[in-house]
């Protein structure tokens, strides 16, 4: 079983987001970068699956050299090796084209992504890979198992969950609940130093989109406080002032 885990490197969840260069870039001053939380789940699950069924876990990232420290963390958690495609992750489509190129020559049985990256929130890469590779893609999975040469997924659907059996190779995206993310231990951290991290150059791809500008949400008006002794008044305000309930 050869598993590839696509990993994006994102600002830590506590980051206060602001922009620089005329609002064209994220202000990275003081920002801690981490493994995208959903990718931490897919990585952990991939490791669990190879522990059970044998095989290897490769981590792939589209990013520049500043991502290496975070990639080493993925190796410390337990991936066998890593590939970094040396390019700025311009958008989901660019990233997927680069990943697809690596996957085509890699002979993978299963490719995992996160449900979304918490910076771009595209939720795109899983489906894009599926179509680029002509593979089945199962999105937003809370369970990933292997049985008799097939993959068994449980995925979120609007208002519920669904169990899906899929042929391999396949691509799937990880949702919370998939597993408990592993954290690196000392042995893993030591081992990670010597695990292979291969850097490859990107293939030429037309840019499907261009990020022009960023904005932060408009600041909120001051809160309107209602006396707790007269809390029922809230319902009236919501109906007649905010006009938000019938």
């Amino acid at each position: 079983m050869k598993i590839l885990v696509c990993m994006s490197v994102v600002p830590d969840t506590t980051t206060k987001i602001s922009f620089t260069d005329n609002n064209t870039k994220l202000n990275t001053q003081g920002v801690q970068f981490i493994i995208n939380p959903y990718d931490e789940l897919s990585l952990t699950r991939a490791i669990e699956l190879t522990e059970k069924h044998g095989g290897t876990v490769t981590v792939a990232n589209v990013g520049k050299a500043d991502a290496d420290a975070v990639i080493r963390k993925a190796l410390a958690i337990g991936a066998n090796d890593a590939i970094r495609i040396n390019a700025d992750p311009v958008d989901g489509q660019y990233v997927a084209e680069q990943l697809a190129h690596v996957i085509r020559s890699g002979g993978y049985d299963l490719v995992l992504t996160g449900r979304e990256s918490i910076d771009y929130n595209g939720g795109q890469v899983c489906g894009l890979l599926g179509e680029l590779l002509s593979w089945p893609a199962v999105n937003v999975c809370t369970r990933i198992d292997l049985e008799n040469g097939k993959a068994i997924f449980e995925r979120d659907i609007d208002g519920g969950r669904q169990t899906v059996t899929s042929s391999l190779p396949a691509v799937a995206s990880a949702q919370k609940d998939l597993c408990e993310p592993r954290i690196p231990n000392m042995k893993g951290i030591m081992a990670a130093r010597t695990k292979p991290l291969t850097v490859v150059e990107p293939v030429a791809v037309e840019f499907a989109s261009t990020y022009r500008q960023f904005e932060t949400p408009a600041p909120k008006q001051a809160v309107k406080l209602i006396d707790a002794a007269n809390a029922g008044q809230l319902i009236d305000l919501l109906r007649n002032e905010a006009k938000i309930i019938a």
Partner: peptide, 20 residues
């Protein structure tokens, strides 16, 4: 052709030009 999409999990928006 520029659209506005949510990014950074509710902490921002991006104006993106769709080229194709």
């Amino acid at each position: 052709f520029r659209i506005r999409r949510g990014v950074f999990s509710g902490k921002g928006f991006a104006i993106v030009e769709l080229n194709k």
